[in-house]
Amino acid sequence: MEAKTKDLWVFVETNQDGSAKNVGIELLSPGKMMAEKQGGSLAAVVIGCHVDAAVQAAATHGADKVYVVDGEEYAHYTTDAYTIALCALVEKYGPTSMLIGATNNGRDLGPRVSCRLEGGLTADCTALDIDEEDGKVAWTRPAFGGNLMATIKCPNNFPQIGTVRPGVFKKCEETEAKAEIIREDIHVPADKIRTQVLELIKEMGDENVDLEGAEIIVSGGRGVGGPEGFAPVKALAEVLGATVGASRAAVDSGWISHAHQVGQTGKTVGPKLYIACGISGAIQHLAGMSGSDVIVAINKDPDAPIFDVADYGVVGNLFEVLPVLTEEIKKARA
């Protein structure tokens, strides 16, 4: 389809209580920059049930407009209802480009919408920009197992759509809400929704791990040596009020559950502090945590690649370093 405006849209996914998920608010930050380069406005799209909190969050984090679709049929995410609603909005207003968080729902919604609109989609992006020569979105994502970064364009169909990993961008500062709120009355008949949500299971086993929302993460890698090796990692995390993370090597070895995995095939995170313990720093892991504000690496190999991205490094055995660090933090807080 043809674009009717130069606007850039950000799909703001919502929680069950009607609040906005972090990734949608995070994407308003690069969205603002990209919309200005495109010569259009930044619009947030909120679909859900009783979503005033999400609308307010979008309005105070940089959106010029907020398109709102609110109805009982959107109380739980379903592919059919959300696709119909989002496609109806796109066909009516015609944005040039659209960003969607690469969450479980976003990874389902993005391809369905792009296929229905006969456009392209670039998945799991980690960097975004507008090409100054042609004004098209330059989507950057890991390729070939994370061994290189590819920049992709979909220049012939609109809107240009991409899914972006949570935690890649930081939220902009909250300001006074000045956004235009546009409410659309779009309802989807029950017979058009082919799936029904029977139960929501929020936890994986006995764990509920929020890596993407964590301000401090302490991660263990192959160097912990086994499941018991996570004991000092967890002890340090406890005194710091941190979340426990892990590299793919530790997860693949069965030492800790996949819910803790950071990296290209896990979660992309951007905490204020990331402590990597016994993690060598494979490019796949770095792709998931290099956006952290401060990175501390603890590894007995002085040539480990993790030290190339670390702000602070300790060359030493993690089983000697972590207990001392944990005790010193306890003393400082006593």
Rank of each mutant, 00 (worst) to 15 (best):
V12T: 08
H260Q: 09
G263R: 01
E133K: 14
I186R: 03
A20C: 03
E203F: 12
E320H: 10
L325T: 12
H187V: 13
P302C: 09
I298R: 06
V244P: 09
L318N: 00
V309Y: 07
Q38W: 00
V324E: 13
D70N: 15
D17C: 06
T83D: 06
D206A: 15
E180S: 13
K202P: 10
M149W: 00
G62D: 07
G220A: 03
K331H: 07
M34H: 05
F169K: 08
S19L: 05
L148H: 08
K272H: 09
G263E: 03
G313R: 06
D206S: 15
G146W: 02
I283T: 14
V324A: 14
I306F: 04
K136M: 13
E174A: 15
L28N: 05
M149E: 09
G313Y: 04
D7W: 01
N157W: 04
P155G: 05
V233E: 01
V294F: 10
L28C: 10
L109D: 01
V12M: 08
L286A: 14
I298F: 00
M204G: 09
G288W: 00
Q261W: 02
R112G: 04
P232S: 04
E207V: 13
E184T: 10
L109M: 04
A20K: 04
E133W: 00
A75W: 09
A88H: 07
Q56R: 12
Q196I: 12
V233Y: 02
Q261F: 03
G24V: 01
E26P: 03
K300Y: 02
D185N: 14
S19V: 04
L117Y: 02
I216P: 10
V197K: 04
S257I: 07
G18S: 08
I295R: 00
S290P: 11
A85V: 00
G266W: 01
V209H: 12
G62H: 06
N104F: 07
E26Q: 03
D124A: 14
T14W: 01
D308Q: 15
T83A: 13
T140M: 13
